[in-house]
Design a protein around this nucleic acid. Structure first.
Lengths: 149, 149
DNA sequence: CTGAGTGCAAACGCTTTGCAGACAG
DNA sequence: CTGTCTGCAAAGCGTTTGCACTCAG
């Protein structure tokens, strides 16, 4: 489940960039935390272990990895959320987010359910949905059951 | 297509609030501009005619009307976008946004296409999509044809 | 009259940027 | 060595808030 450092070093250098300790730490931490992580949460974690690392470095590092395609960025209510990007051949073709308005939990939705919907939007509206364009707010199963009125 | 002032005055007073000139101007302007309007754009317009009106008043006014259900707020990339809310019986039960990543145009999607999708999410993920929860990014018909590779 | 609403100005949270120094290659 | 990257500090953006004053009811 963890990223292989060598591959990453290769990927980074392939683009003519450098693999600094800071970047390794940022990526490692994001990987350890798993799932979707706020910049704030990630910085807190990183900063706990390496207080010298600056917030701006975290932002720049995440941005950098996002451009390399190693992490994925999502905008949630004005704040950025990052996650490790799975290998393209795994589930890369459909990656959308279900965000629980109560507990903030973020899940993925992919596959048929979405494709059928996207197909209709293209047919009926001529609208081509982005591969990563869907962010759906609502109540997850737990919060939904908890809030049963 | 325009809102009736008397009804609005009634609605406002019914909640024990006041219908000030500023609020009328804000609502009028939003109504005239039509469709989805940025706070920045709305303020610019309002400010052009009534320079004394403050940005914060626009924010508070929009917030106020949103609570009354007269306008609808949507978050687009960290900035708020407002629109006149149609009467509940018209299309109130399904109101979602298609946002073009190129030209920024915002359209609505409602009805079957969405309901089928929402139904599947509920069945397969136990996730209850918000009535206003969908914001879909992609390319609208025009931009899609223009960018034909 | 009286308190809901306003304008002003300052602060907020998240993110970005300019710069001089540091270090991966 | 050299130019990418870092830390620092400051600014930027959209938005919110505290305050005394004003005006709709």
């Amino acid at each position: 489940m963890s990223h292989q450092r060598l591959d990453i070093a290769t990927a980074v250098r392939a683009h003519g960039h450098r693999l600094t300790p800071q970047r390794q730490i940022i990526l490692d931490t994001l990987c350890e935390m798993g799932g979707h992580v706020t910049v704030a949460a990630l910085y807190e974690q990183v900063s706990g272990r390496f207080p010298a690392i600056d917030r701006s470095t975290v932002y720049r590092g995440l941005d950098f990895f996002a451009e390399l395609g190693l992490v994925r960025a999502t905008d949630v209510g004005g704040a950025a959320v990052y996650e490790i990007a799975g290998p393209p051949e795994a589930n890369g073709h459909a990656h959308h987010h279900l965000i629980c308005r109560d507990c903030g939990f973020i899940d993925h939705v992919s596959g048929e359910a979405f494709n059928a919907f996207a197909g209709r939007l293209r047919r009926e509206f001529g609208f081509a949905v982005d591969v990563e364009g869907l962010t759906i707010y609502g109540l997850c199963r737990e919060c939904n059951e908890g809030a049963a009125a």
